Simulated assay, not measured.
Amino acid sequence: MNYLKLSKEISYALRHSPSEYGLELDDNGSVNLEELLIALKKKEEFKFLEAEDLVKMIETSDKKRHEIVNNKIRALYGHSISTKIQKDAIEPPQYLYHGTARRFIQSIKENGLLPQDRQYVHLSIDIETAIQVGKRRDKKPVILTVKAKLAWENGVGFYKGNDKVWLSDAIKSEYIEFPES
């Protein structure tokens, strides 16, 4: 079983297009495990898929994109579907980081960090993860420091995505430290 390919397929189904798979997500983005298996087995490459494969996919993933709880599976972050996935706000660490392309810096200075085509702004717990994320759009990304604790104290909501990813609705530029150009 190609677990990376399976992870990407499930991410697409749960984050971006559940209706394409005949799935309906609940308020926290979960779907019954059996329903997902039935949907995926319709594809030739996944026709022998079992629940144990989903468990192994999650256990072996370095990005921890999914979780299974009470016989339901969900993507932890990255949703672009129109129905907002509900998350419980939680106090963040003092600082979080955001890796971005240099071409977006002026817009971020003017408008802050916005979710764009996702439901939440994605933030990293450490600089190394932010660099990895930023390199998706720029070979030399800019790493922004978000004063998360201060933003939280001023009413900005933060939500834990996984051990390395935090989420927020939006971050005003006043809570962002920009590196000197």
Rank of each mutant, 00 (worst) to 15 (best):
M1E: 04
L4N: 08
L6F: 02
K8V: 10
K8D: 03
E9T: 12
I10L: 02
I10F: 01
Y12M: 07
R15K: 03
R15T: 03
H16D: 11
S17K: 13
E20H: 12
E20L: 03
Y21I: 08
G22N: 01
G22Y: 00
D26P: 02
D27L: 03
N28L: 03
G29V: 05
V31D: 02
V31F: 00
N32L: 09
N32Y: 11
N32D: 09
L37A: 00
A39E: 02
K41W: 04
K42S: 03
K42L: 09
E44S: 05
E45S: 09
K47T: 09
E50H: 01
E52T: 02
E52D: 04
E52A: 14
K56A: 01
I58N: 00
I58C: 01
S61L: 02
K64D: 13
E67W: 02
N70W: 00
N71R: 14
G78Q: 05
G78A: 05
H79M: 06
S80N: 12
S80E: 14
I81D: 10
S82I: 06
A89R: 13
I90V: 09
E91V: 12
P92G: 11
Q94V: 15
Q94R: 13
Y95M: 10
Y95Q: 09
Y97R: 11
H98M: 03
G99F: 05
T100L: 12
I105D: 04
K109Y: 10
G112F: 06
L113D: 08
Q116Y: 15
Q119M: 05
Q119V: 08
Q119F: 14
Y120A: 03
V121P: 02
L123G: 05
I127H: 07
E128Q: 14
T129E: 15
T129M: 06
Q132W: 05
Q132D: 14
K135T: 02
K135L: 12
R136F: 10
R136Y: 05
R137K: 15
K139T: 11
K139A: 15
V142K: 03
I143H: 05
L144A: 11
L144T: 14
L144I: 14
T145D: 04
V146R: 06
K149V: 11
W152D: 06
N154A: 08
G155D: 12
G155H: 02
K160T: 07
V165N: 07
L167N: 14
I171N: 06
I171S: 08
Y175R: 11
Y175K: 06
F178N: 13
F178S: 08
F178Q: 09
F178V: 10
P179Q: 08
E180V: 15
